[in-house]
Design a binder for these strands. Structure first.
Lengths: 143, 143
DNA sequence: TTTTAATAATAGAATAATTCTAAAATTAGA
DNA sequence: TCTAATTTTAGAATTATTCTATTATTAAAA
């Protein structure tokens, strides 16, 4: 799903709907987040931009990420023993699996994880996030 | 449960069992983590040390935390939108509730949260951590 | 005990991710 | 076009954490 310009309108519309002025930089970064990247760091976004959107500054990467978060189009994910923030453009309710070998973070649909809690009613839970850590078995080749 | 010296032996023994040489600084920090603090940051530990263990340096705080983590006596917790690492001296399997008002992180016993996942068998899960976010209702005063 | 070797603690410098600042560029509306 | 508001930018500042080199402490050996 490489950038082809055809979904510019769609991306732009989503930004506007969320109250974000759709500048060229924001559209580019948001499309990268939605269509090409998988939980990238700010650094990865900058590296991508250096190839695909010259002159886009690191400050703009951070500004845009924070604008998207503020507009509820993006979420931060912090992972233990990983210094950099990961960004998640999937804003629907879901969970994560962290591959201990590759460091890759994989989205897990909420349907695959059932969480039942019996906390004291004092605790009003608004959000639950489940982070599973482990290894991903290499899928065996068919003969 | 203020420090009284009586559990020095116990703390010291736990460190030794874990293969950590029990120096005065390590015992002090580990006791603070176990008995007084609740998911402190390195900064909070340093502030406590400035009052209770003069001359203990910030470098030693970080060194000790990393030694404890390496020895499996301590775990890191990273929370979204919180820059600093929180440290958790409860190493048994449990979950967390983050109070959105106070920022306080509360341990939730694993018995109170049931997690049932049906991931593809490709995913070998070694650890699950559940972070619940929400507000804590003020408990109503009895008349 | 002394001696020696290994380990830990320390102050301060270095690193690195993110945020801030102030100026220039762009945009949107009048 | 003019004006005001917003965004982008480069580079400086901030801040949590780690590193470095030295000194202090500990543990074991003689």
């Amino acid at each position: 799903m490489k950038q082809n310009g055809s979904d510019n309108k769609l991306i732009s519309g989503r930004l506007e709907t969320a109250g974000v002025i759709p500048t060229a930089q924001r559209i580019a970064i948001y499309r990268y987040l939605l269509c090409e990247a998988n939980h990238p760091t700010a650094e990865e976004i900058k590296t991508w931009a250096d190839k695909n959107f010259p002159k886009l500054s690191l400050a703009t990467v951070y500004n845009t990420l924070n604008v998207l978060i503020e507009a509820n189009l993006l979420k931060e994910v912090k992972v233990p023993h990983e210094a950099k923030i990961l960004y998640d453009s999937n804003i629907s309710y879901h969970h994560h699996f962290l591959d201990e070998d590759s460091g890759e973070l994989v989205d897990i649909p909420s349907e695959l994880v059932e969480v039942t809690s019996t906390l004291a009613k004092e605790f009003q839970v608004h959000d639950i996030q489940v982070l599973m850590r482990g290894k991903r078995q290499k899928t065996r080749t068919q003969h």
